[in-house]
Design a protein around this nucleic acid. Structure first.
Lengths: 231, 231
DNA sequence: CCGGATCCGTAACGATACTG
DNA sequence: CAGTATCGTTACGGATCCGG
């Protein structure tokens, strides 16, 4: 009797096209991969953090995706010092460039696919959108700026902070925020790229605390550069 | 005896996340979909054109992808007048915005995934990369410009033309080109976004015909705006 | 020939159970 | 906590067929 051992495919499925887009998708075009990258845009994450955020991924597939991203040099796997006894995944510089390349695609989705409101059982985290909106801020506008704003969007919280030219998004509540902005995702997204008028946002945006940092940040978000156009 | 009819799933598979990127990928994240969009960036195409360019897609899947893109309002299906007796697919304005959003991802792939040279049996078409490089040209720089340059890259040809502010890529050979540029993809891509120095390209770029239009176009390609940065 | 639809084998994914 | 192992289901790939 002969046993056939199921051998793991040595070659990944490829489009077999000498083209930048095709080769990008060969690497990160499979299901869930780009969402793992998105998760890491709000800072290093543990395996269980990713599994928790990516509802429905299945543990086995997540492990495979992490392994691929690591082999391809898009993330690093670091062991935290003993007291933590844990390991975290972090974007490499190449991975961060990929993350930046996802910004227009995410904004396209915000513009065209967020008009259908959030379904009752649909997952949602404030940092998912905030990382892409934060990428719109022009670093040239942040010299000397040092601000942390706590956002609360549709009952999820995340903070956006600017310090020494570094723009960072932190999931959840931070304890050193300069002020708190309470609004919804569509309003904030509409402010940043589109139809919402910054001067008439009184009833859709509530600022708790000092208004100046909130104004500053919303100003930075609204005077970003143009989006790319095709044709 | 009871026959079970295989019912087409009424609900597409979704990440179930209220997030711009997730919802984009719900729409266009499945295999081959974004490559169909890329094909349409170089002009309207027939079904058989797409099937021919997307080697390995399988006719049934291509038909499904086209149907989805049409239902989602990203492409139109037009019947050509009787002598042609054919139908072509064209990007809608929303579809063109999506195409523009793919540019950074394609450039990321050019920068990071094209160092592995073209495999012997790997498919290649000049327009695949040219549409994304052309998107780097700033429309503000094209006022009054009217030029058509025939490119020949690694034995595939496509033309890039600018006219009345419209930038267009045409597959294959055109018959009204102002000049011909012969080079390879890595050189052209390196010129546009990266490490190749425009002043020392003599032996890597060959211009057949009038040098002025070629210089103009290469100049437009190299002085595009910065790419988005993350972090 | 063009524009698909049908069928079927294989690979990818999703859910759950289990382990160091 | 950080994954493997297993297994049923879905998606994809290739071939064939079919109506205009």
């Amino acid at each position: 009797m002969i046993f056939y051992r199921k051998v793991r495919a040595v070659t990944r499925r490829s489009y077999n096209q000498y083209c930048g887009l095709s080769r990008s998708l060969d690497l990160v075009g499979e299901r869930w991969t780009l969402l793992v990258v998105r998760e890491l845009m709000s800072g290093p994450k543990r395996y269980s953090d990713l599994a928790d955020a990516l509802d429905g991924i299945g543990t086995s597939l997540l492990a495979n995706r992490i392994k691929q991203l690591h082999e391809d040099g898009l993330i690093t796997r670091e062991h935290l010092p003993p007291p933590a006894a844990s390991q975290v995944y972090t974007l490499t510089p190449t991975g961060r460039e990929l993350a930046a390349a996802l910004v227009p695609l995410a904004l396209w989705g915000m513009r065209h696919r967020l008009d259908e409101p959030r379904r009752p059982d649909e997952n949602y985290r404030a940092e998912w959108s905030l990382v892409f909106l934060a990428a719109l801020i022009d670093p040239a506008d942040t010299v000397g700026v040092r601000v942390t704003v706590q956002f609360r969007l549709d009952d999820s919280a995340a903070a956006l902070s600017i310090e020494d030219g570094a723009i960072r998004v932190t999931p959840g509540e931070v304890d050193h925020a300069d002020t708190v902005v309470v609004t919804d995702l569509r309003t904030l997204a509409g402010l940043a790229y589109g139809p919402v008028d910054p001067v008439a946002i009184g009833e859709r945006v509530r600022v708790e605390g000092d208004a100046a940092p909130a104004r500053l940040l919303i100003d930075l978000l609204t005077r970003h550069r143009e989006v790319l156009r095709f044709s």
